[in-house]
Write a protein that binds this DNA or RNA. Structure first.
Length: 291
DNA sequence: GGCATTTGACCGTA
DNA sequence: TACGGTCAAATGCC
């Protein structure tokens, strides 16, 4: 599956692209301070272009720099077919990208993390190779009563046990579908308005830059759980990602730097949203489409 | 008693 | 064969 030359060349390409990416982002950060919007926009497009290049190169088979430097593991997503499993969700069919939306959330110690306002039932837990923490599997409480296909996978980040990677699969078709968080998630899963329960995204790919921007410009304040005030509209759901047919995950490597610990988290997320494009070093990784 | 969680087993894919 | 995802029985909690 590797049509792009030998491993050494791949690594060289990976290294070069990673360097360019880092430089672009540093430039971006600096430009944010005092340069005009047009220049920032151009810089953003440059960053997007570099990102696309990385994705293309990755499609040729080289290991992503991101996957080497930070968290090994866990994005179970990195395994195209997502492994086995006994039902249709786990056995993703070839040729049909199964939509996932991945977010990274932080939790404050001793607080229930990841309460997104929806009701989930845990149905499994699994140690993941290379990950320090096991991955937990949740499905909609109304799976049987309403046939709701929504599931999510939750895993602690290696670098910071207060950070969680959450991958949503499918959309709620149960009563919870009316919940703002579920509604938002459903839109994320079906940006073109397709309404077939979010099983799989068939709509054309959104331009990658759109996806990127969606990630860099989150649309809602963040909070955990049904916290009063800001963020309540989304019930704590963090729409960091605009999925495209090519699945990718958006990750803030800055986040591992210590959001949350022993502090009020809301101010952090306000800052997170206000300055997302600047102090945060965004990186996205292909979750590549299950097919 | 009903529901949620835990945990080992099973299954499909790479 | 290894791994990830799910199932289902056992267990615990309200």
């Amino acid at each position: 599956m590797d049509g792009c030359g030998g491993g050494g060349e791949k690594r060289a390409l990976a290294s070069e692209l990673a360097q360019v990416q880092a430089m672009v982002r540093e430039l971006e950060a600096r430009m944010d301070q005092d340069l005009p919007a047009a220049a920032r926009e151009l810089c953003g497009e440059l960053a997007s272009s570099v990102d696309r290049s990385i994705r293309i190169a990755r499609a040729c088979g080289w290991d992503s720099p991101g996957s080497r430097d930070g968290s090994p593991r866990s994005d179970g997503a990195q395994h195209p077919a997502g492994g086995g499993g006994g039902n249709a969700q786990s056995k993703r069919r070839k040729g049909a990208p199964c939509v996932r939306t991945q977010v990274r959330v932080a939790a404050v110690q001793d607080m229930a993390p990841l309460d997104d306002g929806l009701s989930w039932r845990k149905y499994g837990q699994k140690d993941i190779l290379g990950a320090m923490y096991p991955r937990a599997y949740f499905r909609c409480t109304h799976r049987h009563s309403h046939g709701c296909p929504a599931t999510k996978h939750v895993q602690r980040a290696d670098g910071d046990p207060l950070l969680y990677d959450v991958v949503y699969h499918g959309a709620h078709v149960c009563a919870q579908a009316a919940h703002p968080a579920a509604e938002h998630l459903r839109r994320q899963l079906q940006p073109e308005g397709h309404a077939d329960a979010g099983q799989e995204l068939r709509s054309p790919l959104a331009p990658e830059t759109e996806g990127l921007r969606a990630g860099l410009e989150p649309t809602a304040p963040y909070s955990f759980g049904p916290a009063p005030g800001a963020g309540a509209d989304f019930g704590g759901y963090l729409p960091l990602l605009s999925p495209t047919g090519l699945e990718w995950q958006l990750r803030s490597s800055y986040a591992a730097g210590g959001l949350g610990v022993g502090m009020d988290y809301e101010p952090h997320f306000e800052e997170f949203y206000t300055n997302a494009a600047d102090p945060f070093h965004w990186e996205y990784q292909d979750l590549y489409a299950a097919n």
